[in-house]
Amino acid sequence: MGYLQGFAVTLRKLLKGTETGRVVTTQYPDEKRPKPERFHGRHVLNRYEDGMEKCIGCELCAGVCPARCIYVRGADNPPDDPVSPGERFGYVYEINYLRCIHCDLCVEACPTEAITESKLFEFSFTNRSDAIYTKDELVVGDDGRPQKLPWEDWKPGDDEHTSAWVRATSPSGRADYEGQVAWSGELGYGIRSPERGQSEDDSVEADLDDDHSQHHHDDHDHPHDDHGGHH
């Protein structure tokens, strides 16, 4: 098929869609499709409700990354002014978005829920150095919200329902934990609500099982401390 024939196919589809009202092409950036709750986008480094950083510099995210786009170096916390509640904190944290494939394995590996992925996936870098995000750019602000850099196109809701909270709803895929909170509070959000069932029927069933879930939780007696991670 030649170039002109290809354009003719496109033109016919466009005219037909205009007549039937079923045009599938959106006018970017004025028209944007809503992003799903499990969308994987730009990372953020979270903080506890008291402002301390969740990252402990364990480097597990860097070790599990298949694209080798994460570089982390930990350091001992200053006794007089600790950065995180543990013995160590993330002194250096970098993500190279020219390599990142947004697989979310770093989020899965993090033991303290420090790193999560937002829905932002619209970058416009003018040079390679801007694509390498440093800790100063990744750590959330004092309001708990991601920092909005000049080359990013943030939309309302892009910082909500981040991947960590979705995946932590049912640890290791066990349905027994569905609907139970199993993570620590987050600056700007507090304790996020767990994701419900995958369909309307599942949500109804989950509501009916609330009493059973609460009883199951009490039997195991997992108290939350101020800086707890996954149970």
Rank of each mutant, 00 (worst) to 15 (best):
A8E: 13
G141P: 01
E195I: 12
C69I: 00
Y91E: 10
P171F: 01
E19I: 14
A114M: 00
S199E: 15
A114I: 01
E200M: 05
Q214F: 09
R68A: 14
H40M: 08
A206E: 14
F7H: 08
C61S: 02
D221C: 12
H231C: 12
T126D: 10
R174N: 12
P34S: 11
G190A: 06
D218T: 05
S124H: 07
S184L: 07
R68W: 11
V72M: 03
S118R: 03
I56K: 03
Y48C: 01
K148V: 08
T20M: 06
C110W: 00
F125Y: 14
A182M: 14
R33Q: 07
T20R: 08
C100D: 05
V72S: 00
Y91T: 04
C61K: 01
D153S: 07
P223L: 02
G157F: 04
C65F: 03
W154V: 04
F39A: 06
L4C: 11
S170I: 09
P79H: 12
G90K: 00
D218K: 13
S129I: 14
V23S: 06
G41E: 08
V139D: 13
D50V: 02
K32I: 15
S118P: 01
H43S: 09
D202W: 05
V181A: 05
E113L: 05
A131P: 03
D80M: 04
V166M: 08
F89K: 02
E117Y: 04
G86F: 07
S199V: 10
E152Y: 11
D221Q: 12
A62K: 01
V140D: 00
S203L: 10
D143F: 06
D207V: 14
A114V: 06
K13R: 14
E113H: 09
G141R: 02
G173A: 05
F125T: 04
P78Q: 04
E186G: 03
N96T: 15
P66T: 02
C100A: 07
H222T: 10
G63N: 08
